[in-house]
Design a protein around this nucleic acid. Sequence first.
DNA 1: TTAATAATTCCGTTTTTGACAATAATAAAG
DNA 2: CTTTATTATTGTCAAAAACGGAATTATTAA
Lengths: 303, 303
Amino acid sequence: MIELKPIRVLRAVSDLKSFSLAARELGIAPASATRIIAQLERDLGTQLLVRTTRQVSLTSAGATVLAQYRPLLERFEEVTRSLQRANQPDKGHLRLTAPVSLGVTLLPQVISGFRLAYPNISVEINFTDTLLDVIEENCDLAVRVSGPPTDKSTIWRKLCEVPRHMIAAPSLFERIPRPDHPRDLNPDFLMSYSAQGGSETWDFSHAVSNVSVQAGRNIVSNNGDFLYALAVAGDGICVLPDFITDKGLASGQVEQVMPNWSITSLWLTLYYPPYEQLPPVVGTFAKYFEAFVQNHPNLETNT
Amino acid sequence: MIELKPIRVLRAVSDLKSFSLAARELGIAPASATRIIAQLERDLGTQLLVRTTRQVSLTSAGATVLAQYRPLLERFEEVTRSLQRANQPDKGHLRLTAPVSLGVTLLPQVISGFRLAYPNISVEINFTDTLLDVIEENCDLAVRVSGPPTDKSTIWRKLCEVPRHMIAAPSLFERIPRPDHPRDLNPDFLMSYSAQGGSETWDFSHAVSNVSVQAGRNIVSNNGDFLYALAVAGDGICVLPDFITDKGLASGQVEQVMPNWSITSLWLTLYYPPYEQLPPVVGTFAKYFEAFVQNHPNLETNT
DNA sequence: TTAATAATTCCGTTTTTGACAATAATAAAG
DNA sequence: CTTTATTATTGTCAAAAACGGAATTATTAA
């Protein structure tokens, strides 16, 4: 298998018309230059250089060989230089995965701001709610909104908590009684936001009381906006992050259910593949994202 | 300096999604694959592959690196394959040098026939009469018409002898007496064909007599056709190879001087640069040339 | 003919490589 | 949830390859 070194030597010898000068240029011993060219000639089955002790010149075969390899070698070295140079935190490519719900609410602002700040970092986002393997997803960084990580193997970093509230349309309470305590909740009207398919469990707290409520299985979806639309239509009660329900609450489309009972927040978390060393662009994005959530009204950064 | 091997390993690992499979594919030890990739990552200053024991995937930096190198690597391997394959005796390029005189007489037939027989061998001919260094000329083969080689260092091969005769225009002998013996020759009318600038010395022989004659310095040229034109004009006597004087003798434009005195023949010689191994195309041409001169009426093959 | 220069060869050393075993980590099976 | 099997990694040792420097050879220039 022919490597680049013999081509580099051939180029240098041909350009400088001397083995010894070429060797010095390349920082190798003259003896090595001789051996490397000899090996290359054996590999290609042709003599490439005609040498006496005082003169060196290409055979026409050698000229052909060098003419073919030279542009490739130059491109290769150019690519290498640019790659070594491009290892900068403000240039490169970023492959993310994020839940679908963030695709319409939070991420557009983050990404557009990030792109404005770092126009030379291109971004590729795979929206999916099923929390697949960070590695299998082939991405550099995964954004998740969920409870505290259970998986111990992956590396994660909690950015902030995502407050959420139980909401429903006012019209719903024309059909069923308005609940005042978690035990009043009818599971049949509780819609679950779940990526895995099972129904949700909510932990309510009010003063010193803590109550757990299991949602029903009538409506389960991994799409928060879908559930929100159902809630607006008055089809049920669901628990959704504030950044989804924000506008609806302000306009009165939906209202908060049991406002004096709070529900444990979700975590906005970054999951890293098991990096040995964090690529600079990933660090740049993580830092930007962190700064973003700290200035966001609906996210609580209680580090 | 980054070589091709790490790129080959990166490609194999990425394609097969496994270090061990890639190592087997490349015929190296798995441990080597690990070390080689680690070295490449150090060289480029970025992590390229995210690996757990069960999964391997490219980081986006790795994807960029591979995307840039892969087409170059493939071109490189393609070029290598084609070069190794193209080392055939009927394909390639040939760089010749030959005396100018052969450029209008012998070589056109040779080359046109050769090209017909080997259409895939391209030919490049540098016509020059000064016998420069075969190496400095940067050619694969030098054709020369001259006396026996004096240089011991270069490799040469005598193809045949080139008979030559002394000729002049009939009109000349209206001005000067027609010579019958070499001693009758007036050096002032003897024109020299000489590449080096000095005048020629001719060795005449007739039966048991041997006479050496030195030409004058009035007209000396390294161009046989120029001398021939002067001879036709009746300006003097010269000694030229039969392949130049052939037609003129037949048409009566010129006539042979002292037909019963013969002059030592020149040699048609091939000079090789100091090859270690003869390139196949060069051998092909030499063989063709040799066959050509054996069928040529004006050239004596007295091996 | 001699001297100087440059490619090549020889030789001892360093570096790299492969094989093997041990370790660590993770996905799949029970 | 524990066990098992698979796979990347690390370490070690022996073998192979590459390397640098000195000696050798060959060729050009004086």
